[in-house]
Computed example of a mutant assay.
Amino acid sequence: MATTAESNIIMEATEIRCQEKSKGGLCYEVILAEPTGTKRAPSPPQPSPTQQTTIEDKLKAAEERRLSLEAHKLASLAAKLSKIEETARKKDELSSAFMTATRESLDAKMNNTEEKREAHINELKNKLKEHLESVEKTRLNLEQQTKEVRAAVEEKLKTAAAQRDENIKKMLDRLKEHEEQVVRVRQGMTERVHQLESQIQGKLDQARDRRESMEREQKEKLRNHNTVKIAKVRETADVIALKELEAKKREIDMKVTIAEENRQREIQRRLQALRQLERRAEMVRQNKAARADQEGKEEENNSALPLKIETASSG
């Protein structure tokens, strides 16, 4: 029982930590605790032989247990280390297999890409060759067409030069005929202008004579018309002046009537004011008279009062 309890205490004190350092790799850290044991009471200074034997047996048993525990721990550590080594070996095998497969895949892809690139380059070369052949054919056709066009243009230029010379000659003949026609037309126009000027001058003379005769007739008519018109105007002016005088007279009469009414109203207002002043003056006179009577009575009373006082004093 004691051995089981001690082993439990040792296992509880021992700590194993596992940490993943990298992908697929593990790191174990084993922490061993200090050996623990129950504290024993100090032995008496002179133990007995039986007690000495018991202690030695216990020490041997403890040493055996410690050795067995260490062996067990070493065995477990060895098993764990073997597992770790196995895991690392498997990881290396998987990594090498993956690298081999990846390398083979890349090699296959590179070979396929190289084949495709060569095929694409060959195709481009063929297309370029065909394009150059078509360009060469087009160039030859263009040169042939250029030669034909140049020959046609030269032929047309020759024909155009001959036609141009002929047209220039015809135009010069037409210009000469046109100049002759212009000279004839100018002469005819000059003669026509002279005729028109003479006709216009004759018409102007006739118009001047007609205008002078019409002016004389108009002056005579105006002279006769002015006499009659002046009489009518004078008569009309007299009528208008008479009407204006009558209107002014009516206006003056109206103003005089209004002024008379205003004067009468002003006279009535002033008379009423005078009557009020007279009433006020009468009231003032009455007040003065009443005040004078009152003052006279007061003076009489005052003069009679000393006589009474003297009589009383003498009596």
Rank of each mutant, 00 (worst) to 15 (best):
E166T: 05
K221A: 12
K248Y: 04
E20F: 05
E143L: 12
S43T: 06
L242M: 04
L307D: 11
P45R: 00
A207N: 01
T36C: 00
Q187L: 13
S68Y: 15
A71H: 15
A290V: 13
E261G: 10
Q294K: 03
R263D: 11
Q276E: 03
V149E: 07
E136V: 07
E235S: 10
E143R: 15
I84H: 04
V30G: 01
E154S: 05
L222M: 13
A290C: 12
T87V: 09
L94Y: 14
A78F: 14
E6L: 03
V193M: 15
E93M: 02
E261V: 10
I55F: 14
E298F: 08
P47Y: 04
L106A: 01
R265E: 15
E179G: 06
R164D: 14
V153H: 12
E197F: 02
P49C: 02
R150L: 11
L94Q: 11
E64H: 08
T159R: 06
A5W: 10
T4Q: 10
N112M: 05
A151C: 05
A292I: 08
T36R: 03
I31D: 01
A304F: 11
E246P: 15
R280E: 11
E197R: 08
A62D: 14
L196R: 08
T311V: 09
A88M: 02
A2I: 11
K219F: 08
E20Q: 05
R117M: 04
E12G: 00
A152F: 10
N8K: 03
S43H: 12
Q206I: 03
R263P: 00
K90T: 10
I252H: 08
L67M: 14
T257P: 06
R174C: 07
Q294G: 13
R186N: 09
Q276S: 12
L196E: 03
